[in-house]
Design a protein around this nucleic acid. Structure first.
Lengths: 166, 166
DNA sequence: TCGGTCGTGTTGACACATCAACCTAAGCAC
DNA sequence: GTGCTTAGGTTGATGTGTCAACACGACCGA
């Protein structure tokens, strides 16, 4: 399974960094999600929706705006909003004589305000403070570069069927 | 919602870096998973299991070894292995007069060998090469630090019920 | 006015993850 | 032995994500 120098294969250092990164992300994500779920009864997905709604001027957004903000597929959005409405965290309001707007409820707002401080504190403790300002700034830059690289690449090979998936 | 200096809240730069990181990870993960799924019919979870089995000396591991390697919960492992066995990627073999071992099949080995080069090439193109060696080394270090920090923290508040979950 | 097709959203089937409960054999106290 | 605990693994219910198919109004060309 080993090829010479310039093949696609990763060398040991690269492999090690990649796997460290994967483990870090999984560990961090699991930790954050378990915290949100156990202490506040919110999934990561719930949190993402509620953050976007609570940060909007009106507390209301169309589903496709949420989709743009979260990068979710539309069917995932539809399913998840239905579940959240059943739990009383959001509400669909018909106003546009066509598609409904998604409004955060008082209960939803209470939920996000309750968990936000502890959530932010954890991001600080386990991510921001461990990186420190310099390394964090570097990570931010590289992250943007990677997103650009992938978007550019995907722009090349799926221009026609870009609707909802790419 | 804004507190003074040393609260839990993130400042603008920190917030921006954190969100760039989240977007980068999601974009990269989605890209890699879609590739594996569409071109090779493997999910990220399938891939993870097959990598571990194919890298072992014998091509066989006990389920709990796979669990240690992947950090999955045991019930997730059990469900997923059942699905993979149904698809012929692995096989459970009774040998130990007690718990079965999980063996990679010829089909499973063929699948992982088919997708590995393209997968590695993508990691290189969208991750390793964008970072470059210096920044990648830094990321590896920080990642390990973060994992240590979280493990140390979790070691504090769940010492008794550590069985399978923590 | 008729027929695309495009954008927005819903639905159903299925794959996947998580939680709690359970099963079973080994190890051990007595 | 009898009974307890523990480790490894399974099961079922439920919540979540993805894919493909559909619904339906808006827009647009003929």
């Amino acid at each position: 399974m080993v090829l010479v120098g310039k093949g696609p294969w990763l060398d040991d250092d690269e492999q090690k960094a990649w796997r460290s990164y994967l483990l870090m992300h999984k560990t961090l994500e699991t930790h954050m999600e378990r915290h949100l779920q156990r202490e506040y009864g919110l999934s990561k997905s719930d949190f993402e929706i509620l953050v976007n709604l609570s940060e909007s001027k009106t507390g209301r957004m169309r589903a496709f705006e949420l989709g743009r903000a979260t990068q979710w597929e539309k069917s995932r959005m539809s399913h998840h909003l239905a579940r959240m409405e059943k739990r009383g965290l959001i509400q669909k309001v018909a106003c546009d004589s066509r598609y409904p707007e998604i409004a955060i409820t008082a209960e939803g707002m209470a939920a996000i305000e309750a968990c936000a401080p502890a959530h932010a504190a954890r991001i600080r403790e386990f991510f921001v403070d461990v990186f420190g300002p310099d390394r964090l700034a570097v990570l931010g830059e590289v992250s943007d570069e990677i997103v650009d690289t992938i978007r550019k690449h995907e722009g090349n090979d799926c221009p026609p069927e870009v609707t909802g998936n790419c």
